[in-house]
Design a protein around this nucleic acid. Structure first.
Length: 769
DNA sequence: TGATGCTAACTTTTT
DNA sequence: GTTAGCATCA
């Protein structure tokens, strides 16, 4: 028997050893899914399958990287190198890069992230003279995204009676036209958004039989991770690619389907057996991750959902500790409880920071945990949230690089044509835009003919300089590598200088971020070519790669001893010894938006199932009686999911709530709490208490003006005086300029606010001494 | 034309 | 509480 087959249980072995024909692996949480996938790939190759013929698709770069790494461990890196392993988006982007010309796109097409796409939509809404309060870009984006994920193009969108009536009902009858305009604009810009990478891939395969045949032949064996999260577009593409050989292996768990908002449909996994003949089904039901207590709770909770693939997850692990249910008064108390519990556990049970994770439903919940952890000096890292590549200074820099690679792209052209300021103002840009529309050219093309724009003098020469500069970068692109071009851009545009000159705290961070970007480009270009394979190190290749990276992928320093904070969605596939499931409150988890349909509610429950099953040995479930949302204190009942945890596995800890609050609330669960948010008005003592706790826990993030704050006359200010600002707190006046109506003070503030220029007409200052 | 500060909107989850 | 877009003034 092969070495790699040892240590597999019977079911796992059965899945690994199945070679030809469709295979569905129903893999319960913690049942060794990745192990089976990677071992199976190794086994295929061991049986003579060429690495070039294997395609493995995942949802995250992290999962792809992990798979690759594990296969390398079994086979050695030279064997594994030629495997095609990646996310749906990155694999399709790579293929599209080779085939884009067939669809009329440049091979260096730009990939728009969500922000870019919303920007295009905002422009279109403006052009159509619509109210963007009603035609909200985010709403429209979601609508278009849903259409693309269902493979509906603008023409079909406008003809579909169901869709049009829906849009009519929400009185947005022009959505179809916006979709149409958006698709055309992206095409003209030579750009694809995330959904296009799937949608256009499908179009490519359907319209070009030779291309389809090529990839069908190439990918004789296809493996798909997290199959329960695939959407219609992904489903159809897989069906096309696998149609000849039917060696499709899907791995998934219907109980962990949590992406329906992105068009994923559990139907794909539920119906897999109907899609192909002779589907081999293997169920992995032994859980190697969690204690019995945790697993039993998870099983009990998920049993409340209907419509599942039948399976019973079991474990031979110890019973373990009970689940701790924690009630606190406010969200800040919740944060404090978690920080305290971590400190205690580290002392008592010798855990490390990296053994803990805090999992929440929405990103906005991270604040109170960050504050409490910081106060306790516990190092932590926020996973997810704003990606490095979404920061303004990075997007500005990248906009140059993207324009150089793809001049069709107007979004990025507009972003930097006057940044740093070079005298090409609003009116000029507008003129260029109008002329471009008029002559049906791109804005870049119009820039070549400034006389046709009616722009003269300084404006014209500014444009000319800009064009010359961009062109010189393009010339460099032919000879230099990505890093050399990027470095030259930073230098010659003045971008780096501009950031360097900004000595404020934020400015310094921005400068450092840009340096980090340059380092990453350098690293990219310096990755050595591997034997037999020349890596594509062009700038275009780099840009396509990074747009598909998320923040979570970026943190490769796994071993750092820090507490992790993330959303439940981001935690999919991960495991931790100690898990805090926080914010278990009605309207938050389950989310207020999910309460109207059984399907949505069941997805929330699956989400709860995912949280529980992340835990190996300890699980805390917490909720707060009231929390700040929208900057306002609102009250929520405990989540209905809390009641689904069997009593025998629970241990209650209400130390976070005071006796007073407890007697107010009563011993029961939720039912005695007033339902609507005005409870505090009725019980002033409770309100005061909550406010007191709130104040005590606020770590001076924002200055509160002194009680005797009365603004002084701007003209009374003198250099060297100590003053108080309503927001920034205390500081010292460094310089003063301007007359009575335009007096500007440069002030060095304490408490990390740094140096700021304040216009004394608007911001009021109080002289301290 | 550019910088500042104000306002409104925001909260589901992400490649 | 935060942030992005906007209005406003020099």
């Amino acid at each position: 028997m092969q070495e790699y087959l040892k240590g597999l249980n019977d079911q796992q072995k059965e899945a690994v050893e199945h070679i030809n024909g469709p295979l569905m692996i129903v893999a319960g949480a913690g049942s060794g899914k990745t192990k089976v996938l990677t071992t199976r790939i190794a086994h295929l190759m061991n049986r003579g399958v060429d690495a070039f013929n294997i395609l493995a698709l995942t949802f995250t770069n992290k999962a792809a990287a992990e798979m690759k790494e594990r296969i390398e461990k079994i086979l050695g890196s030279s064997e594994a190198r030629n495997l095609y392993i990646g996310t749906f988006h990155s694999v399709f982007a790579k293929i599209m890069r080779a085939e884009a010309n067939k669809l009329g796109y440049p091979s260096n097409f730009t990939i728009y992230d969500t922000d870019d796409a919303k920007g295009v939509i905002r422009d279109i809404v403006k052009d159509m003279n619509l109210d963007d309060k009603h035609y909200k870009p985010a709403f429209i984006y979601n609508r278009i995204s849903a259409a693309k994920n269902s493979l509906i193009d603008p023409v079909r969108y406008k003809l579909d009676p169901h869709i049009t009536s829906e849009d009519a009902k929400s009185s947005r009858p022009l959505l179809g036209d916006i979709y149409d305009a958006y698709a055309k604009r992206c095409f003209r810009n030579g750009a694809m958004d995330f959904d296009d990478l799937l949608f256009k891939m499908y179009v490519l395969l359907v319209n070009f039989p030779d291309v389809l045949a090529k990839y069908q032949h190439r990918f004789k064996y296809i493996l798909i991770d997290e199959y329960q999260d695939t959407n219609e577009a992904q489903y159809q593409i897989i069906k096309l690619l696998g149609a000849v050989h039917e060696n499709i292996c899907v791995v998934g768990d219907d109980a962990q389907s949590i992406y329906s908002f992105r068009g994923a449909t559990v139907k794909n996994i539920l119906q897999f057996q109907d899609d192909y003949d002779d589907v081999k089904v293997v169920k992995l039901e032994q859980n190697y991750r969690s204690t019995q207590s945790i697993l039993n709770v998870a099983n009990k909770v998920i049993a409340n959902n209907k419509n599942q693939i039948e399976k019973s997850l079991w474990t031979s692990n110890d019973l373990g500790e009970k689940i701790t249910l924690v009630r606190t008064l406010t969200d800040n108390d919740e944060g404090r409880f978690v920080a305290d519990a971590i400190t205690e556990q580290k002392l008592r049970n010798h855990y490390h920071n990296k053994d803990f994770v805090v999992l929440y439903r929405t990103n906005a919940q991270s604040r109170s945990f960050e504050e409490s952890l910081r106060r306790m000096n516990i190092p932590y890292r926020l996973v997810g949230g704003v990606s490095f590549y979404q920061r303004k200074e990075i997007k500005d820099y990248l906009a140059y690089l993207r324009l150089i690679v793809n001049q069709q792209d107007e979004e990025n052209l507009k972003r930097i044509i006057n940044y740093p300021a070079r005298g090409i103002g609003k009116t000029s840009i507008e003129r260029i835009q109008i002329a471009a529309n008029q002559y049906d050219k791109t804005m870049w093309e119009m820039l070549q003919f400034p006389d046709m724009l009616g722009i003269k003098g300084a404006g014209a020469s500014a444009i000319e300089n800009f064009v010359v500069m961009i062109k010189s970068f393009q010339v460099m692109l032919e000879k230099g590598n990505a890093y050399e071009v990027a470095f030259a851009v930073g230098k010659h545009t003045g971008l780096v200088q501009e950031l360097y000159n900004d000595k404020s705290v934020e400015g310094l961070a921005r400068y450092e971020n840009v340096q980090e970007l340059l380092n990453s480009i350098k690293e990219f270009t310096e990755t050595p070519d591997e034997e037999g394979e020349l890596l594509d190190k062009s700038l275009g290749s780099y840009l396509q790669q990074i747009t598909l990276l998320t923040d979570a992928d970026n943190n490769n320093d796994e071993d750092q001893d820090v507490v992790k904070l993330m959303t439940i969605h981001a935690a999919k596939g991960l495991e931790f010894p100690c898990v805090f499931a926080v914010g278990l409150e009605e309207n938050l988890f389950p989310s207020a938006m999910s309460m109207y349909s059984r399907e949505d509610l069941e997805e929330e429950r699956r989400l709860f199932y995912v949280v529980i099953t992340r835990a190996k040995s300890r699980l805390w479930v917490t909720y707060a009686n009231s929390r700040y949302r929208f900057g306002q204190l609102v009250q929520n009942d405990p989540s209905r999911f809390v009641d689904e945890i069997p009593e025998e596995y629970l241990e209650r800890n209400f130390t976070g709530a005071s006796h007073k609050a407890q007697s107010q609330i009563g011993g029961g669960f939720g039912n005695s709490i007033p339902k609507n948010g005005n409870a505090f008005e009725k019980t002033p003592s409770l309100k005061k208490l909550a406010e007191k706790i709130q104040q005590k826990s606020a770590p001076v993030p924002q200055h509160k003006p002194s009680g005797d704050f009365i603004a002084d006359d701007p003209m009374a200010m003198e250099v060297g005086m100590e003053v108080e600002h309503q927001k920034f707190g205390f500081g010292k006046i460094l310089t003063l300029e301007g007359g009575a109506n335009n007096r500007i003070a440069a002030i060095e503030f304490k408490d990390g606010h740094g140096q700021k220029k304040i216009m004394l007409n608007y911001a009021k200052l109080r002289i301290v001494r």
